[in-house]
Structures are given as C-alpha cells and as structure tokens.
Amino acid sequence: MTTQAARTEQPLLSVQDLKIRIETDNGVMQAVDGVDFNIYKGKTLGLVGESGCGKSLTSRSIISINPKECETTGSAVYHSESEKALHNLDLLSLPPTGKRIRSIRGRKIAMIFQEPMTAFSPMYTIGNQIMEAILIHRTKDKKKAKKIALEMLAKVGISDQEKRFDQYPHEFSGGMRQRAMISMALSCNPELLIADEPTTALDVTIQAQVLELMRELQKELGMAILLVTHDLGIIAKMCDEVAVMYLGKIVEQAPVKEIFYNPKHPYTKGLLKSMPRLGGNKSKRLDSIEGAVPMPIGLPPMCGFYDRCKDRIEGVCNTKAVPKTHISDQHSVRCFLYEDQSEGESQ
C-alpha cells in the first residue's frame, strides 16, 4: 500500500517492496529496504535524502544498471500508454542485458546521470553520442538522426549546433555538458525521465536554467520525472510529490506542500531546518542533524534514525521495526510518534 491510495488513475510506474542487498567483506549491506512509490504521467516525484541513503541505487534499479554485486528483489511495474507489449510489465523481472530492457532504456525510460563531467565518453563527439540512441530507437537513417540531434541541441539552448555537434565533451563547459546530456536523454521522447542530481557541480544561474528547461520539456512532452536530489530548494520548485529516504527506507511521503508545511518525521524536520532562508538571521548558525547515516550492515530491527533523533522514545524506537503510519490518504510516515494516528503496516 502506498501513499497515493486515494488516486484513481493508473501510475506510469509502480515500485513495490524494492530491496537491494550487496555482499561485502564485512557482511550483507541492505542498501535499499522495502521501498514503495508510484510515478504518474506528467508529474514529478522527488526522492530526497542525504548521501548514502540509497537514492541512486533505487533509481538505477528501475532500468537495471546497478553493479552486478547488487541483488535486487521486489517489482517495478511499468504501464506504457503507447505500447500494449510494455503494459503491466515488471522491469525487475527482465534480464539486465536482455533485448527487452535495452529496448526500454533510452526509448521509454531515460536517465540524466549525476556527473556531467564523466557521463560522456571522451573518445566520441557529442553529436555522435546523441545520435547513437536515436539510431538505435528511432531511425536507421543517419541524416534523419543528425537532424533530430541538432534539433534537440537547439531545444536545450545550445547555440551554433552544427559546430557543437562535432565537438568533444572536453570542449563543453559543465553547464553545456549538462544540457547536452538532457538533449541525449530526451532525444527519443521518453515517457519517464530519471534525473539523478541533474544540477550537480553547476553554478546557481546554470542550475536555474537547467531546472526551467526540464519543466518546459516536461510540459511539452508530457513525461513523468523521478528527480533524485538532496537539495530541498530544487524539490520545492520541481516536484508534485516527495519521498524522503533514509537508510534505505522511505520514512515519509506526501505531496510537496504537505512536506514543507506539515512535516512529520524528525528527519524531514531536520532537513527543512537546515535550509538557509532569505531574510534569516545572518549571525545565527544553520541547524544541522548531528551524526551521519550508519552503514546498513547487520543492523537490528529498530528505527535507523534513532541515534540522531532528538525525539526518540527509549525502549520503543530502539527495540522493534518501525511500522508505516498513514496520516492521510496521501501522507505516510515511519515513526513511532504517530503510530496511534492510524493503523500502521509493519514492513
């Protein structure tokens, strides 16, 4: 059961009980532990949390591009509106190197990777790399593919496209590489765009331009977006719904306004308090969450945020697994502070 139970339309993608285990020398790492969420056409779901919470592994598992060491279970059911063969298809059941999932990657589900400096191969031109996806998924005609690639470069705001088409990644600035990556991701008109920290290492001006570009292209193409970030400012601007992730679990999920104006989980509250605010007291230090995300190896059944939480209940939070409590049809939280507000689901 997810927080979107009240919605009647069918989700484009429904992820249920996603778990990712990794064998290490120190034991089994439970990197992702029972994650549920739905993504709807034309909407943006934000996946937010500190580094090490499992956000990138979660997003990459959808198109099966995690390292081989990752043992993934659960389901990611895809409901393509344009192809019956891809309707009600569990992506996690497909072989990671098989034809079926490769036909979906880039064409139906595209991804903007976290680091624009290394996402492109230095051995090939930008145009060549954008054309590759187009030639695989849209047309075998190289002239048509080049025309589409040039149009996409223009659409993302890169001028002098003919010249830029034949340049190598090192000849592009960070902002231009990010734009080129977006043009490559959108070159096949995907139904779902996974954006993993799409504005990493960009200055504030370029960041704003990239985010605005993504919003405009979303409206134009009607695609859904899964936005992975640790920046709540980006979440506020871009998302319709937010899933707050901590230690491999979604600890709170709700519409974006609900998260900002009525946060429930102590971790969510801590993230919001740590945000700088315009007009705030410059002499006052920003609040911070003490401690760090623990390594998810051999952890007992208890609240993962226990050691860092100021509101913890001794003898409760550290003795058993935390159930999911539904505050409302669209707002859920994993915290013992709200266990009596509805019937929780131990997961």
Rank of each mutant, 00 (worst) to 15 (best):
M1G: 11
T3P: 08
A6G: 12
L13S: 07
S14G: 05
L18Y: 10
G27T: 04
M29L: 14
Q30I: 05
D33N: 15
V35Q: 12
L45N: 02
G46Y: 09
K68G: 11
H79F: 13
S82D: 11
A85Q: 15
S93A: 15
P95C: 11
R100D: 09
R102E: 04
S103A: 14
G106T: 03
Q114Y: 14
E115P: 04
P122C: 03
T125Q: 07
I126D: 03
Q129N: 13
M131N: 14
H137K: 12
R138E: 15
K140M: 01
K146D: 07
A154D: 15
I158H: 11
S159M: 13
E162G: 04
Y168W: 08
Q178N: 02
R179I: 01
A195P: 08
D196A: 08
T200R: 14
L202I: 05
T205P: 08
I206Y: 02
L213D: 00
Q218S: 02
D231A: 06
L232W: 08
Y246G: 13
L247K: 06
L247M: 09
K249Q: 15
K249N: 14
I250V: 13
E258D: 14
F260G: 08
K264G: 15
T268Y: 10
L271R: 04
K273V: 01
S274G: 10
K282A: 15
K284I: 01
D287M: 04
S288I: 14
V293H: 02
F305P: 10
C309Y: 12
I313G: 02
E314I: 14
S328R: 01
Q330L: 06
L337P: 09
E345L: 13
E345W: 02
